[in-house]
Amino acid sequence: MSTSRKKTGVPSDMQISERELLAMTRDLDELHHDTLPKMQAAVAELREGRGTTRRGFLFGAAGVTAGALLIAACGSDSTNKSSSAASTAADGTSSSNKLTGDLAIAALAASLENLAVQTYQAGLDAATAGKLGTVPPAIATFATTVQKQHKDHAAAWNAILTGAGQSAVTGVDKTVQDAVVTPGFANVHNVVDLAKFALGLEDVAAATYLNGIQNAIQDVGAIKVAGSIQPIEMQHSAILHFVLGDYPVPDSFAKVAGARGPDDIIG
């Protein structure tokens, strides 16, 4: 692409302090909550106007409205369902791996999103602790923003699960965590390592969604959800490629290589 390729290195000066990093995280959280009233109003409108008609996201045998999905994606107003799901997961009795069909894919997707959230948090924690050396502001912004988007993606899948009468998935894809994340994160010593590591996770998520759309998911509503998320994961991947000095759109067609399947252990 450019003739002036320059691999990202670790700058010599600290670019962001712990205080700034925490403030940025807090600001993003506030931004997130700023959006809630508007979204909740829209959901209320939906319920008032069309609440008695079960339409939209049908998933397996049970249905969930996009309104419910929207609420959960905001991380609020689903307290009862979420708390119930959380307690189930806390007991270690998640039934996610007993699910079949589209619901199993939803659980897998939620667990991968949770793993991404957890991994970015680990990266942010390591940065805050000074373990990654200099953390440029743009990298911190990337991590906090992407983490929030993954939280919303997980919430979307969990809304579908709880809407279908299942428990939300609060655990992570243990198969990937144990085989890839845990050993891999031990080798993350700076932001370049972190970016490379994150790139791998984003590519796995995008591939999993693509594989779901192409080969696994049957319900059109679920296809829409997966389809609305996969291109976002690919954008994360493109920016990471760009920052790392690689061509940002390496493939003309998205690939399913690395896609995870419903046999992964969730816990």
């Binding site: 440029p136 743009a138 920052v243």
Partner: peptide, 26 residues
Amino acid sequence: LIMLGPPADKLPAAAGSVGFPDTFLK
């Protein structure tokens, strides 16, 4: 700063998120 592998320490903070403004594609 428009190059592959831009110097990350020189990028404005907003550059970290401007590429993916939507959480879900509409």
